[in-house]
Every structure is written in structure tokens, then in C-alpha cells.
Simulated assay, not measured.
Amino acid sequence: MLEVLNLSAGYGNIEVLHGVSFKVKEGQVVCLIGTNGAGKTTTMRAISGMIRPRAGSVSLDGNQVAGLPSFKIARHGIAHSPEGRRVFPTMSVADNILLGAFSRLTGSRKRGDVDADMDRAMELFPRLKERRLQLAGTLSGGEQQMLAMARAVMLRPKVILLDEPSMGLAPILVEEVFNIITRLKQQKVTMLLVEQFAAAALEVSDYAYVLESGKVALSGPADALRRDPSVRAAYLGGMH
């Protein structure tokens, strides 16, 4: 499905990623965990085309997408729910969600039943259904996060990149966001997850990679990493 090989990327003269490699198989939830500055968000941005990789490859179903513009990467089937949400504040909730299907509506991807998918998104995110005519800028932070996720789902992507979906949210909303991720997993949606709450990320994931200073330091089944003493001490507070 998604394969990242020897990926290097950064900003200006600063290289953040130094040869990162990992795979996400179809139907899996894979998480990247690590401290702030480890390179997690940079990895997501390099995959989705927000920044251009300096070296390495990103392939989706064998098709090389590294270095392509973001809109062309989306056409291949990679949807990105970015850190910071980035909704369109002066547009309605419904229109924001519909924008996720833009490449389907313009013929760049198979159209399918967009109306049915809109209904599915509203059922998956009932808070958004209640606020579908509201301007996105008037939503709470948690609701905007759900909106960014719903927009990504509307692409009908092969893989969704979820970057820090719980950032800045109250605990009750964090739980709701992870319930939605669990429901997507049950629907066999393939996801790559970056998350500050490592325990929650490992609980919902099938496989995990630990990033340290722009390199993969450790990897394995998520359940095994949850039990790993070094991971527990460094990222789980010695708990779980």
C-alpha cells in the first residue's frame, strides 16, 4: 500500500528527516510516535506534498508520488488531515466536507456516489451533522478537528494521514476522536497516525514506529511496543 523508503526532508538549511523508512499495509492503522521535534509532522508533510522531500521515495500501490504537488498526490489517493486542522472558516461545514471530494467531482478520481458518502460522513460525525449549515470558523477546536477528518474521508482515499488529531482538545473530545478512528478502523480504512498521546495511539494501531531525531529508532506490533519497557518509560510515563 504505502511505502516510505530512505526519506529525507526538512526546512531551509535544516534537515529534519534522515533516511526514514516504513510501510503501511492495506487496512492497517500505523502510528508514528516520538518526542516533539522527532520529525513526525515533517514525515506527514513530505508524504502529502506540503514539503518536497530531499531524497528517498514515497510510493502508493507501487506508484511513485514523492515530489509531486499535493493535489496530484491527493488524486493518487492520499488524504491528509493536517496538524492545525486548516478548515475554511468562511465556508459552511457541509461545503468544507464536500471539498474533500473535489478531485472526484472534477473527474480526477473515480466519482462514485458523493451524496451517499456525504451522508456517511455526517453519520460518522454527528456533531457536524447538527452544524452542517454553520460556518466552519464558528466551530470549537474539537469540532474543527472532526471537520478536517471528515473532509479527508470524503476523498475516498487509499490511505488517510492523521496528524495530531487530539492536539489541544479536552479529554472528552480526545476520547470522541479516538472512537471515530476506531470506527474507521472497523471499516478497514487504512490510516497513518501521528499522535502526542502515545498510549492512545498504540491502543488503536496495528503497528508502530518510534522516531528519534529524524530516524526510526524502533518498530514493531503496537501491542508489543506498549509492553516494551523503554517505550513505556519514554513515552507512556511508565504506565499502561
Rank of each mutant, 00 (worst) to 15 (best):
P165D: 09
Q144K: 05
A170S: 09
I78D: 04
M122I: 11
L98D: 00
D163Y: 04
G107A: 08
Q145W: 10
L99R: 06
A121N: 05
A148F: 07
R85K: 12
G67E: 01
R151L: 04
Q134V: 07
V153N: 07
G107P: 00
K110G: 14
G84F: 10
G100R: 03
K110A: 14
L147H: 05
T90W: 11
D95A: 13
G84N: 05
A170D: 09
S70W: 11
F71K: 06
A152W: 02
M146W: 02
K110H: 11
E130V: 02
G137S: 08
F88T: 02
D113S: 09
R104I: 03
A74L: 13
D115H: 12
L139W: 07
R75T: 14
E123M: 14
S81W: 02
I160G: 12
V93T: 11
S166L: 02
L105W: 10
G142D: 01
M149G: 00
D113H: 12
I78H: 05
S92C: 02
R85A: 11
G100S: 09
F125P: 07
I78P: 12
S140R: 09
A74N: 07
G100A: 08
L105F: 09
V65D: 12
P69I: 07
R151H: 08
V114D: 11
M149A: 01
E143R: 11
D163V: 09
L161V: 10
G67R: 00
Q134A: 07
G107M: 10
N96Q: 04
K158P: 04
R156I: 12
L128Q: 06
Q144N: 08
G168W: 03
